[in-house]
C-alpha cells in the first residue's frame, strides 16, 4: 500500500508531505505515548496518534515511519505542518476513529 492510497482510496486529507506520497506503507501502529512509540513502532509504519505538536514529526522522521494519521479530524498545529513539510513527513487527516482506520487497512489487504 502506498501513502497516496490513503488519499485516493480512503479519502483521507493530506495536510503535509504532498511530494512524498509515493512511499510504501508496511504496517499500521497506534499509540499516543511517545517513548512507547519510540520503542515499538517499526520502519515504514503509518502511525495513528492524537498528538499533534511538533514532536511527532521528529519521531516519525527518526524512526522512518511512513506517515502520521490524525484521526477524528483533530486540529493539527500549524507549526507541526510546516515542520512536517520541511522534514518530508506526510501527515494525513480523517474524520473516522482509530478502529475504523484499522478496519480500512485490513479490508485493503494489510495483515
Amino acid at each position: 500500500m502506498l501513502i497516496k492510497d490513503l488519499r485516493d482510496k480512503f479519502g483521507f486529507k493530506v495536510l503535509a508531505g504532498e511530494d512524498v506520497l509515493d512511499r510504501e506503507i508496511n504496517g499500521l501502529y497506534c499509540c499516543d505515548l511517545l517513548s512507547w512509540v519510540m520503542s515499538h513502532a517499526k520502519d515504514g509504519d503509518a502511525w495513528i496518534t492524537v498528538q499533534t505538536h511538533m514532536n511527532i514529526v521528529a519521531i516519525a522522521s527518526l524512526l522512518n515511519l511512513a506517515c502520521v494519521i490524525v484521526p477524528e479530524s483533530i486540529d493539527v498545529d500549524e507549526d507541526t505542518i510546516v515542520k512536517a513539510n520541511e522534514e518530508e513527513v506526510p501527515i494525513l487527516s480523517t474524520d473516522i476513529d482509530s478502529f475504523k482506520i484499522f478496519t480500512k487497512f485490513y479490508e485493503a489487504g494489510m495483515r
Binding site: D32, S35, M38, S39, Q51
Partner: peptide
C-alpha cells in the same frame, strides 16, 4: 498530556 511521561525513556536508551 503531550504524550511524554510513560517512564520508558531511560529503559529505551539502555536497551
Amino acid at each position: 498530556e503531550l504524550g511524554f511521561g510513560a517512564g520508558m525513556g531511560l529503559p529505551n536508551m539502555k536497551r
